[in-house]
């Protein structure tokens, strides 16, 4: 045991790492607090990190390396000829929508207090969300180039 005095400000041991001993009556681990809110909080962080990768690359390709002047039907035909880009896009779609919809759910929980309205709002959110995931996934996965109509 050290006898030197410790300055209190800078050497706090990490509490999370050290406190697994007397957490319960029996000294074992606490019963799981794994619940939806913990999962939602953790999901934001994981999907957020992944989205940094996917979304920034997407923006780089669409807005910096190319731009709206160049992007047209043919651009998409070429891009989605590769299964790699289809996979990339569907990952981006699902991650972005779930991350965003979870955020919208949090906003509803924060600001809509009446139980009836909250249930209605969250239900609408889920329905709209599923609809858009399906719409988005459908076109990414099943798109086949059509024969181009003759130039007018």
């Amino acid at each position: 045991m050290s006898t030197e005095t410790k300055t209190t400000q800078h050497t706090h041991p990490d509490p999370v790492a050290r406190t697994t001993r007397r957490w319960t009556r029996s000294g074992g681990r606490p019963r799981p607090t794994g619940n939806f809110e913990l999962f939602s909080w953790y999901f934001f962080r994981i999907s957020g990190i992944l989205l940094l990768f996917f979304a920034l690359i997407h923006l780089l390709i669409m807005h910096l390396l190319n731009n709206v002047d160049v992007i047209d039907y043919n651009f998409i035909v070429q891009r989605w000829a590769s299964p790699l880009w289809r996979t990339f896009d569907i990952m981006l779609l699902v991650l972005a929508l779930t991350h965003g919809l979870n955020g919208a759910r949090v906003l509803i929980y924060d600001y809509v207090h009446s139980r009836g309205w909250r249930t209605f709002a969250v239900t609408t959110l889920y329905v709209v969300g599923i609809l858009f995931i399906v719409l988005g996934a459908q076109v990414i996965l099943t798109f086949q180039p059509q024969i181009q109509s003759v130039a007018k």
Partner: peptide, 8 residues
């Protein structure tokens, strides 16, 4: 929050 995450 971290304690909850690591001990779930």
């Amino acid at each position: 929050r971290r304690a909850m995450l690591y001990n779930r």
